[in-house]
Amino acid sequence: MKEHIRGQAYVVGDSIDTDQIIPAIHLVYSMTVPEERQFYGRYALSGLPEASQGLPHGSTPFTPGDAFKSPYSFIIAGGNFGCGSSREHAPFALQEAGAEVVIAESYARIFYRNAVDGGFVIPFETRVRLIDEIKTGDVLSLTTGTGILKNETSGTEYLLEPLGDIAEILKCGNVFEYARQAGMMTQR
């Protein structure tokens, strides 16, 4: 897990489900073949209705045009982020697009687990409704160890919720390394 992360924010609303994160029609691409997996970056968050693409103004796709990478490192969301299906393609697509962190008021549990166990993106929780305070394009910097988030554009600082138990898995990189350390999987 990186100690410092700095980049632009992409702000979405409440209850963004996995079909909005990666529409089911795209799930046929291989997640390992490089020429195919990059499409997960292209179509990440492409299921958002136009008006909710990058708040507060909307109409700002997460990955612009024909690009495979998104300019945004942070996704700022309301409650119940990642609800819906169990598709691991969802946190994977966000990572593939270049996102590193999601900061939401709450998560659907399978998305949360997938993000952590696969080591795709770091899911931070916030008590403050950041989607009312941060705008798409604001420059943020985060210290992962302390959970201190700074909005460099507005100058405001926030303290995110502690990562708790999942910090151990995130430090290991993914659940396999964690399982090895817990003695649940033989060392390679």
Partner: peptide, 13 residues
């Protein structure tokens, strides 16, 4: 329900 990573861990262990 779980994701692919968790399922792969179960598949192996």
């Amino acid at each position: 329900g779980v994701g692919n990573t968790d399922a792969a861990l179960i598949m192996g262990t």
